[in-house]
Design a protein around this nucleic acid. Sequence first.
DNA 1: CGATAAACTGACCGATCGTTCGGTATGTTA
DNA 2: TAACATACCGAACGATCGGTCAGTTTATCG
Lengths: 218, 218
Amino acid sequence: MADGQARRRRGRPGYDRESLLAVAVTVFNERGYDGTSMEDLSQRLGIAKSSIYHHVGSKEDLLGLALDRALDGLFSVADAARARGGPAIGRLEFLVRGSVAVLADRLPYVTLLLRARGNTVTERRALTRRREFDQLVADLVKEAERDGDIRPDIDPAVTARLLFGMVNSVAEWYRPGSPDPGSQSRSPGNTGSRGSAGELATAVCAIAFDGLRIRRPG
Amino acid sequence: MADGQARRRRGRPGYDRESLLAVAVTVFNERGYDGTSMEDLSQRLGIAKSSIYHHVGSKEDLLGLALDRALDGLFSVADAARARGGPAIGRLEFLVRGSVAVLADRLPYVTLLLRARGNTVTERRALTRRREFDQLVADLVKEAERDGDIRPDIDPAVTARLLFGMVNSVAEWYRPGSPDPGSQSRSPGNTGSRGSAGELATAVCAIAFDGLRIRRPG
DNA sequence: CGATAAACTGACCGATCGTTCGGTATGTTA
DNA sequence: TAACATACCGAACGATCGGTCAGTTTATCG
């Protein structure tokens, strides 16, 4: 993105850390981290198993790199939401839209994060950071409820979890497709899995904030 | 449930298939199926690794038993919803409430199902059944939209996925607690994770169907 | 060209994986 | 008590696991 033309690197061409990580994360998502062997990875990469260790110290390092990418993205929008100011309900909606955007943009990384079980040190560190993010959301919902902008009949903690449960579920089926301009996701034959991230965020906010039922007059 | 007092079994006491499965599924959920070794299981069970094979043919069989329990529960409410008749929107809400109930009742089994990646034959068979269930939901949403009961500005397929994304996300944090009577989940210090399944289903339906924003007069 | 930088390889290691097997322990039934 | 039913065990299996290492290949730079 920065220097445009992707300057030709020095030595023998092949994978670098970044391109290798991208493939690895894809396989991790297909078969699960624990269900993926280094042999699986090497086959998909088309290089020997031992070659992987030229780019990364261990399988767990690979996971750590991926999880950090996801968390950095989420906290980046969280910071932006905080800096935004204004009523909590507005910041909350901003955070929802931003989270959907990050999810779409870094889909495989976030997917991996959402599936982390905490088996290793790396995963536990990531889960700790993730809980901090969830706490931010919970606080925001609580504040919005105090402001009288959110229905008070549901525990804000439950509200927060259900809201982001819906957001995060996007990772299970969304696959990036055609970008924004003019792509109307109600076209025939559309399975609904390939609209733009912007449309998707709008749908999430519509259902979450206004509900999916039609409000009949009278 | 049928004969009340749980008649004393014949031979040497210990685990049977059912009690062993319950423990196994718990561990599978903690560490993930692939992340759980038979050694892990045996330690948690307090018996030798080889003893497990007296009760079940393989690790994968164990998974299969668990996944079937989840799917049977879900299809049971799906059938009940179908038999119910009436407008689609009503059957849909019934299905949501029922799914939350199954999720709460068979939590570890459903959790396992939601995390299945399709690595083995057993998992792929389960995922096929699950997709059938999802299709039922999608059809129901589509019908409700044709009836004019659901907002037409969102692709019904997306709506269905987001709706059940929210429902399924319950498995990530809900832990069964005190049953229904009198338990008000808005009590101080409540993290929102231990209300009754009924309350939870109500919260899900409230957010999903009516939205979480307060509708201000004027 | 030689120097340097980066990517890649095959052979191998100890540990752990799921599974098998012959035999043993402990309860109920007749 | 003998017969039966059920649960459990330790030792071992071939396969696969994540990871190491000494060396080779292929590019750019001066």
